[in-house]
Design a protein around this nucleic acid. Structure first.
Lengths: 224, 224
DNA sequence: GGCGTCCTTGACGACCTCGTGGCAACGCCC
DNA sequence: GGGCGTTGCCACGAGGTCGTCAAGGACGCC
C-alpha cells in the first residue's frame, strides 16, 4: 500500500486529505509541524510527502533540506502563496511539485499519482542470487536451500539497503539513517547485532561471512 | 548539455522559451505540432520535453501516450486551460507536471530543473585504472591482481584525496588538513607512515613507487 | 492476562588501527 | 666531504571497533 505523510498545521486540511486519501486506498500519516514531520518520515518511510509551507516551527525549505539529506522521497508542496520566488526556491531546494491553495482535490490527487509513478522503480526483476541464498526485493522474500528464511522487519530493511547497493560500501551512518532514521547515526551497536543475526540466518559459515562483509571502521558491503 | 524539446504552435512562445533556455545553457529543439514532436523526440532523445496542449494536429494526451510507449523522459505540459479534469487526465496519461498559461518564466525553469534533477541517473561509478591496481571511488574499493585490497579508513582517505587530484601535486598541508583536520598540518610524520603502507599494499615495487610519488619538500602526487 | 516476537541495551574479550618514537638512508647546501 | 633536514621503515602500546551473548522491555495476538 502506498503510504502518504501529510504535513499541515490546519486540522481541517489534514482531515480532508486523510478522508480523500484513505478512500482511495492510501495509508495516511499526519504531522502538524516540521519536527514531527522529519521524525515520522524517518520512522515510517512514506512513499510520498505532502508538505504545507506555513508550519509553526520551521521554514518549509528547512524541512525539505532535512529530508533531502537522506531520502529522495517525492515531496509535493502546498502553499497559500502564489509568489514566483517562493515557488522557485522551494523547487530548487528539492521539492518535486508545488500546488497553491486553494487546490482542487482531483488535481492534487493526480499530481500525487504522477509523483508516485515517477518514483516507482522501473520494473525491477529483482531477484539477487548468491551461492548460499537468494533475495527477492519485489516480493520481500529471502530463500535458502529451497525454503524461505524468516526475517524480522528490521533485518529485512538492513538487508534490503545492502542488496540495493550490491558491491558498494555502505557506511554505518548511511545504513543507520536509512533504516532507523537520521537521529540514530551513532547507534553503531544496532548494526553489530543485526548484521550478526543476518549472517546467522544467511551465511554458510557465519563466523567467516562471504556476502555480508564488514569493512572495519568504514561500513558494510553486500557481495554477490 | 541538457537538451530540451519545446512543442508549441505559437511562434512567440517558442521564441521566448528558446531565448531563455539557451541563455541558461540548455540545448533547444522545437516542434510546432505533435507529429514533428514525436519524430524529434525519437531522433534527438531530449532530456526533458515542454509540451503545449493546444496543438493543431493531435490531442495532447495522444502525444503523451505516443511518447510514453517507449520513453520515460520527463514531460512538462503547458496549457491555457485551468479545468481540473484536463489536468487530471493529462497527468494520468503520463505527464510529469502541468503549468497553466500565462506562466512565469522563473517558475517554469524551476519546474524544469526539478524534472531534470529527478530523472538524473544516480551518479555513475568512476573507476581509476593503473597498470598495477584499480580504485573505485563510489564503491570505496581497491583491487589488485583481481582480488580486493583491504585498506584501513585512514589509508583509504589518504588515497582518495590523492586520486581525486590525479596528476596534480597535493601539498602535505593540504593532505593533512583533508584527512586529519586543520590542526594537524605539521604532523608530516603521519604521511610518511601512511604513504609507506599504501605503497606496500599497492605498488609492485614499494621501494620504487610509480603511482604514489613523493615530491620532496612539497607533497605527494598520484599518477595513473 | 499470558505468550511470543521483536527491538533495544549493556558487558566483555579478541582483534586491529592509529599514533608515536627511533633509526638508517638519502639528497641538498655549504 | 661534512652537516642538516627530509624521507622511508620498523616495532610497540593505547585506545577503539567488532562480534557475541544475554537480559530487559515494548508490543501485538490470542
Amino acid at each position: 500500500m502506498t503510504r502518504v505523510l501529510v504535513v499541515d498545521d490546519e486540522p481541517q486540511i489534514v482531515r480532508a486529505l486523510r478522508i480523500n486519501l484513505r478512500a482511495r486506498g492510501y495509508d495516511v500519516d499526519a504531522a502538524p509541524d516540521g519536527r514531527t514531520a522529519l521524525d515520522l518520515a524517518a520512522r515510517r518511510h512514506p512513499d510520498v510527502i505532502i508538505l504545507d509551507l506555513g508550519l509553526p516551527d520551521m521554514e518549509g525549505a528547512e524541512v525539505i533540506k532535512g529530508l533531502r539529506g537522506w531520502t529522495s522521497v517525492p515531496i509535493i508542496v502546498l502553499s497559500a502563496r502564489h509568489a514566483s520566488e517562493e515557488k522557485v526556491e522551494t523547487l530548487d531546494v528539492g521539492a518535486d511539485d508545488y500546488v497553491t491553495k486553494p487546490f482542487g482535490m482531483d488535481e492534487l490527487l493526480a499530481r500525487l499519482r504522477a509523483a508516485v509513478r515517477r518514483a516507482a522503480p522501473p520494473e525491477e526483476d529483482a531477484v539477487i542470487v548468491t551461492d548460499d541464498f537468494t533475495v527477492d526485493l519485489a516480493a520481500k522474500k529471502v530463500g535458502r536451500d529451497g525454503a524461505d528464511v524468516r526475517l524480522t522487519p528490521t533485518e529485512w530493511h538492513v538487508l534490503e539497503v545492502l542488496v540495493r547497493n550490491t558491491g558498494r560500501l555502505v557506511s554505518q551512518q548511511q545504513l543507520l539513517r536509512e533504516v532507523w532514521g537520521p537521529s540514530y547515526e551513532n547507534e553503531t551497536g544496532y548494526l553489530r547485532v543485526y548484521l550478526a543475526q543476518l549472517r546467522r540466518k544467511l551465511e554458510k559459515d557465519p563466523s567467516r561471512p562471504r556476502h555480508l562483509i564488514t569493512e572495519p571502521g568504514m561500513g558494510y558491503r553486500f557481495e554477490r
